[in-house]
């Protein structure tokens, strides 16, 4: 029961603090679910993100639904409790947006162009960029106590992983390949090469 409450509370906070869309949300989910609570490993989280990017709908919702199911299922072994877990994370994620958007609709003419509001947003935007970068770093490197840095071996087991990474980066950044196509292609390449 306490895990349900923790999941609900955690995803409520994630929903309330996500500024800048789905990728910003991934960084918050990563920080809470992997780094803080150790509910999932880096590699399990990476798999979930991959599946969430391929499934229709917002990436943040998909990831939250999947994480809710996975965390509860891993602990209980019950599909039914897993479904309840995914319900609680998804609901918790949407609830803050709901409350805040209702206020925004009421005040929306007054908020636009308000210099204080714009000032706060000007500070938050570059911060969010850093948060998303941190999510990518934390799926690659593990920082132990002191200055102990190691590679996340499950995500980058050998040099060939870096070839996958480099090709995907180039194809997505300059080639404008869609994420779905890249995930499908890399899965096929993995099946053939490994």
């Amino acid at each position: 029961m306490t895990v349900f409450l923790q999941l609900f509370f955690t995803f409520f906070i994630i929903g309330a603090f996500t500024i800048g869309g789905g990728y910003a949300m991934l960084s918050l989910i990563q920080a809470e679910v992997v780094t803080q609570h150790h509910w999932l490993s880096e590699s399990a989280f990476t798999d979930i993100v991959a599946v969430s990017q391929m499934t229709p709908g917002p990436v943040g919702i998909n990831t939250a639904t999947y994480v809710g199911y996975e965390v509860i299922y891993a602990q209980s072994g019950s599909h039914f409790l897993g479904i309840l877990g995914s319900l609680s994370t998804t609901l918790a994620l949407v609830l803050p947006s709901f409350l805040i958007m209702l206020l925004v609709v009421h005040f929306y003419t007054r908020m636009k162009g308000n210099p204080i509001y714009e000032g706060v947003m000007a500070g938050l935007r570059p911060t969010v960029v850093g948060l998303i970068g941190a999510a990518a770093v934390l799926l690659t490197l593990r920082f132990g106590p002191g200055l102990d840095v190691s590679l996340v071996k499950e995500n980058f087991p050998d040099w060939s992983s870096w070839v996958f990474f480099g090709l995907a980066f180039v194809a997505s950044y300059w080639g404008k390949f869609s994420p779905i196509l890249l995930i499908v292609l890399s899965a096929a390449a993995g099946l053939i090469l490994y």
Binding site: S43, T46, D47, V49, A50, Q53, A136, L139, T140, E154, N155, F156, S161, W162, F164, F165, G166, A168, F169, S172, L182, I183, S186, A187, A188, A189, G190, L191, L193, Y194
Partner: peptide, 8 residues
Amino acid sequence: GVRPVVVA
């Protein structure tokens, strides 16, 4: 194959 791609 997919995991490093997700990071990119």
